[in-house]
Design a protein around this nucleic acid. Structure first.
Lengths: 73, 73
DNA sequence: TCCAAATGTATAATAAACTTGACATTCAAT
DNA sequence: ATTGAATGTCAAGTTTATTATACATTTGGA
């Protein structure tokens, strides 16, 4: 949806979690059923994931969506 | 993103929360800065919200994204 | 019953979220 | 220095999320 001017953006710690778990981007992409390009885009903040993908990533890392994706920065 | 065959879909209790709080769809739409059409679509499960909108809805209802949106049904 | 408010439907346009594929750059081990 | 693995860039195509708008239907209070 259109970003609203003046609202803080969503950041994430996908890269950090991935590295802590010793995974490549390809590993994670396969685990959550998206392409590597999508993981790159998310890690670099090019766009936010769909809610569905957010669920899958949270489930994979066994944590909450709002622990991975957060407001700020 | 493309729905993956065989995966459960995301449901939500937006309508319930809205009614508990005595709000019209228009009220909620304005509160979270989307059109009424978007609220209708979400309540009827036509599509899932963006992560950003999920954040705004959760914030408005003072709860967590995963309390409003959940897997199943 | 009436009527305004609330909810619902439909649709085309736009923007964002992915995919694919090719190529470039970086990194780390040898 | 070399090299394979990992990461990064780019762009066009596809799909989903949202908007705007008009009209229809339902709801609930008077």
């Amino acid at each position: 949806m259109p970003r609203i001017e003046g609202t803080p953006s969503i950041s994430n710690c996908i890269q950090k979690l991935r590295q802590i778990n010793g995974l490549t981007q390809e590993d994670l992409a396969k685990a959550v059923q998206v392409t590597r390009a999508t993981i790159i885009a998310l890690e670099k903040g090019n766009y936010n994931p769909s809610l569905e993908l957010a669920f899958r990533i949270a489930k994979f890392f066994k944590t909450d969506i709002q622990k991975i994706f957060y407001i700020g920065d």
